[in-house]
């Protein structure tokens, strides 16, 4: 008989004695499979230390990345979705909203806030993909519209961080018109000469791409982000062929001329600060803190 026969048959450890690694201690990069300690991964702003793969993060993390000492004032956090169509698919829409709110502790798919970035005042709207795919309904449109209004009144630059599958079907016509509403507000912002930076993150598609996400004075993206109007599956079905590798990646979109640059998350804050500092008008005296922090970081 073969020499490699098992002495004991099967798994003999009783379930109670099974040793497991607790969840959340390690992060395995889906791209290069490198395993990182989660604390380390967080310190790295959720990018892989080896291959720079950018893990999807939510508004809470982006606010922490952008705002000094994670200090910010949230705007319009009391807005929540209504159900104007009495929409029912496999589940009534209000139930879906409620379940998602409970699961994510978010009110809807975007959060807007005002704070300082290296001492510069900034209004930020950031989408949350885990809230029904970051889909845009009335609340998303309205919150972005109000954030733009706020930026216009205060004359603060506006940063939009997009991460969305597109429009929210459960609000049908209303959802479509949010594309119009946000674009209208951006047209007004542009008239005032206030900078608008649009950061596209993984994924940004559909109605979001076809409205505010592509309307930045500066359209920028995170590496590897999927960016497009039609989703890859729809295109594949239309043309009946496999899509080439890297199609609709941030790098592809940059190559075709629709992005100003791609920025690594670890350099995001400094690069935005540098860019906005360059756009400052001579009559505005730079705030003291902006000046000093900037100097410090540049030196460092």
């Amino acid at each position: 008989m073969s020499w490699f026969r098992r002495v004991e048959k099967g798994i003999v450890t009783p379930t109670e004695q099974k040793k497991e690694t607790p969840d959340g201690l390690w992060y395995k990069c889906p791209e290069c499979k490198t395993v990182t300690n989660t604390t380390e991964h967080k310190k790295n702003l959720y990018t892989c230390p080896k291959c720079d793969y950018h893990e999807r993060i939510n508004s809470a993390e982006y606010f922490e990345v952008i705002f000094d000492n994670n200090k910010f004032e949230e705007l319009d956090s009391n807005l929540s979705s209504s159900d104007p169509l009495n929409f029912v698919d496999t589940k009534p829409y209000p139930k879906r909203i409620k379940a998602t709110q409970e699961k994510t502790h978010l009110t809807d798919a975007v959060r807007t806030a005002h704070g300082q970035m290296n001492g510069l005042n900034l209004v930020v709207a950031c989408m949350d993909f885990n809230f029904i795919g970051g889909s845009m309904g009335s609340v998303v449109g309205e919150k972005i519209a109000r954030a733009i209004d706020f930026a216009r009144q205060q004359k603060y630059p506006f940063l939009m961080i997009s991460k969305s599958g597109g429009a929210r079907m459960m609000e049908a016509g209303y959802s479509l018109m949010q594309m119009a509403k946000t674009s209208a507000k951006l047209a007004l912002l542009a008239e005032e000469g206030i900078p608008y930076i649009s950061l596209l993150t993984d994924p940004t598609t559909g109605g979001v791409t076809a409205s505010f996400a592509m309307l930045g004075d500066f359209n920028i993206a995170e590496p590897g982000a999927l960016i497009g109007f039609a989703g890859p599956r729809v295109i594949k079905e239309t043309i009946g062929k496999e899509l080439p590798k890297g199609f609709q990646s941030a790098e592809f979109v940059l190559e075709h001329g629709f992005l100003d640059f791609i920025v690594n998350r670890k350099e995001l804050k400094q690069k935005l600060t540098d860019l906005l500092a360059m756009l400052r008008q001579p009559e505005e005296a730079p705030t003291k803190s902006a000046h000093t922090t900037q100097k410090k970081t540049i030196k460092a």
């Binding site: 951006l186 996400a213 592509m214 039609a230 239309t238 075709h256």
Partner: peptide, 21 residues
């Protein structure tokens, strides 16, 4: 709007967004 490869390469999203604004 046409969901094709070339449409994406030439910025279908940007073209529509620009018109809205």
């Amino acid at each position: 709007a046409f969901p094709g490869m070339e449409a994406e390469e030439r910025g279908q999203g940007e073209a529509i967004a620009r018109n809205l604004k």
